[in-house]
Structures are given as structure tokens and as C-alpha cells.
């Protein structure tokens, strides 16, 4: 899947979660627990890789959301990566600021970074999203060209 189509899918997921409001968290929590149990096959295996629960809050006037999503690229083994876009497993979690996806990654020690804070780690996706809001100073995330 291309980055753009993936992004559209994720945008859809965000809207879906927003639409079902209070009904969603229980289902997402259950999915998160399953994902955590199944996520032990990572070769790096450090830290607690249980996917965090979803969140949805307004921070300094910006809506920030995070939620587990299906992991990309399951079954990918080893070095086929001649395209930078096809070689990685996503973190199985998506973060949005005002509905726009914030590209996030998870580190081997289970901490998080985003495209906005790429050289500094955060313990939770919520802390990461708040740091992005602080850094954005009201600016809107844009898709990469």
C-alpha cells in the first residue's frame, strides 16, 4: 500500500473512532491486548511492547488521538528492502493531531518518536502527541510531498 493510500485508510479509521465515540474504547482495548500478546515475535524483544490503549483528548486546543491499528507488513522477513517504503513493520499504532496523521515510530526500548520530535524519545504516544502540539504552535501537519 502506498503511503498516501495508507494515510487515507488511517484518516478513515480516525473518523470511525471519532464517530463511535464512547463505544470504541472497550473494543480497542481488547484488540490492543491481543496485539500485545501476539507482538512477541520481534527480534529485538526489549521493553514492554504491549500496544498502548487508545486516547482521545483536547490538548492546548488541539484534538489528539491515538489508537492501535493492524500491523503492516506481517510476514516480511529479512532484507528485501530496496524501497524505503516497503521494508518496515509499522508500530501498530497511529496518532493524529486534528485528524491529520502524525508519523510515529516505536523504539526497541518501547519508547516513541514522531516526525516532529525525531531525535527525542517519549514514554507514551500521548506524551508524544502533546509534544508535537507544543512544537507545532498551531501549525497544521501536512502530508509529505
Amino acid at each position: 500500500m502506498s503511503d498516501i493510500s495508507r494515510r487515507r485508510v488511517l484518516r478513515g479509521a480516525a473518523i470511525a473512532v471519532a464517530g463511535v465515540a464512547m463505544a470504541a474504547p472497550a473494543a480497542i482495548a481488547a484488540q490492543s491486548a491481543v496485539a500485545g500478546a501476539g507482538g512477541s515475535g520481534h527480534p529485538t524483544g526489549h521493553g514492554d511492547h504491549t500496544r498502548p490503549e487508545a486516547f482521545d483528548e483536547v490538548y492546548r486546543g488541539r484534538r489528539i488521538q491515538g489508537m492501535p491499528i493492524p500491523v503492516e507488513g506481517r510476514g516480511h522477513t529479512g532484507r528485501t528492502g530496496h524501497s524505503p517504503h516497503m521494508a518496515h513493520e509499522g508500530p501498530g499504532y497511529a496518532v493524529f493531531v486534528d485528524g491529520e496523521e502524525l508519523h510515529v515510530m516505536r523504539n526497541a526500548d518501547s519508547s516513541w518518536i514522531s516526525v516532529v520530535n525525531h531525535y527525542e524519545t517519549f514514554r507514551t504516544p500521548r506524551a508524544l502527541a502533546r509534544a508535537a502540539v507544543d512544537e507545532l504552535q498551531g501549525a497544521v501537519l501536512v502530508p509529505m510531498a
Binding site: 529485538t44 524505503p84 521494508a87 518496515h88 513493520e89 515510530m105 516526525v115 509529505m144
Partner: peptide, 21 residues
């Protein structure tokens, strides 16, 4: 700038990694 961003956002701890980590 574009090349650097493509690598830094795809280099991952449990997948292919070339430019970082």
C-alpha cells in the same frame, strides 16, 4: 532534505535500517 526524510522515517529497529539506528 527529501532523501534524508525518506530514510529517517523508514529506518526501523525491527525492520530494514540503513541511515539511522
Amino acid at each position: 532534505v527529501t532523501t534524508h526524510n525518506e530514510f529517517i522515517t523508514s529506518d526501523s529497529d525491527n525492520g530494514d535500517r540503513v541511515g539511522h539506528r
